[in-house]
Design a protein around this nucleic acid. Structure first.
Length: 255
DNA sequence: ATGGCGCCACATTGGCGA
């Protein structure tokens, strides 16, 4: 089973790239973030023409998550159970016996910002909910844009980023609490190239200069971790015309 | 010290992302 995640920064603009990605990689499930579409505007016909089903929870202008899959998904849940949040950042679905969760963690703006407080509170709610989900789903994968670089090697200039949003200690501690639930960062199950990132600022030729952050992750429950055979970043999609600023991440599990 | 880029909308400028 091939699982993938991609922050597309507007599905309306990126639909051609998403269709290309589906054709090239043929993932069994693709989690999307920042679709920036109301549900009524979701391009369901084009997705179905490509041989995929879609579940989505969106809103105008900001946020928005979706899960595309080859087979039908069941037990859809939008949002963190018990947490009222008008921002559409979470969607869970069961696909081929695997609980697949697409997450778009708040950015936080800066460590001084109220949005940073919201980010940390949001992560605490996510963690508590995932603990309960893990108790009922042996096969569980949490894929998405976490807006956290967990480790120094995930940041092109860790000294410059020390204490900054996306790399601050409280955010990294929140990420470690997700790992402490028993989830594995699938990318680090394997030897990886240096300077492996999933996001590069559009400005200053950061992609060409290989200056980025690894903030998009695929976390796997123990049952899936043991079956995981690879995890890779599809940098080719970031090198295209009119790219998202994020690259897709792909994990293969032998199920 | 600031903005750089890209996307969006009560749009021709400002909010937001990361």
């Amino acid at each position: 089973m091939k699982l993938a995640t991609w922050n597309v920064n507007s599905l309306k603009v990126r639909l051609p790239q998403v269709l290309d990605f589906l054709a090239a990689q043929q993932p069994d499930a693709l989690c999307l973030q920042e679709t920036k579409l109301e549900d009524a505007s979701f391009p369901i016909a084009e997705i179905e023409r490509a041989g995929y089903r879609a579940a989505y929870a969106g809103q105008k202008t900001y946020n928005g998550v979706a899960i595309l899959s080859r087979t039908a998904s069941t037990d859809l849940q939008a949002g963190i159970l018990g947490y009222e949040d008008p921002q559409k950042r979470v969607l869970a679905a069961t696909i081929d016996g695997v609980r697949v969760i697409s997450v778009y963690v708040p950015n936080g703006e800066s460590v001084e910002s109220d949005k940073y407080k919201y980010k940390l509170a949001w992560l605490a709610r996510l963690t508590a909910w995932l603990e309960a989900e893990l108790a009922t789903h042996q096969r569980l994968a949490v894929l998405g844009d976490y807006n956290i670089a967990p480790d120094e090697r995930d940041v092109y200039d860790p000294k410059a980023w020390e204490g900054q949003v996306l790399f601050s200690e409280p955010e990294r501690a929140a990420f470690r609490r997700l790992i402490a639930l028993g989830l594995a960062d699938s990318f680090r199950l394997f030897e990886q190239p240096e300077k492996s990132y999933t996001w590069w600022d559009y400005r200053m030729n950061m992609f060409k200069r290989k200056l980025g952050l690894r903030i998009d992750h695929i976390l796997l429950s123990p049952a899936l971790t043991g079956a995981c055979r690879s995890c890779t970043i599809d940098r080719e999609m970031r090198a295209r015309e009119r790219p998202s600023d994020h690259a897709p991440v792909i994990a293969e599990v032998a199920l």
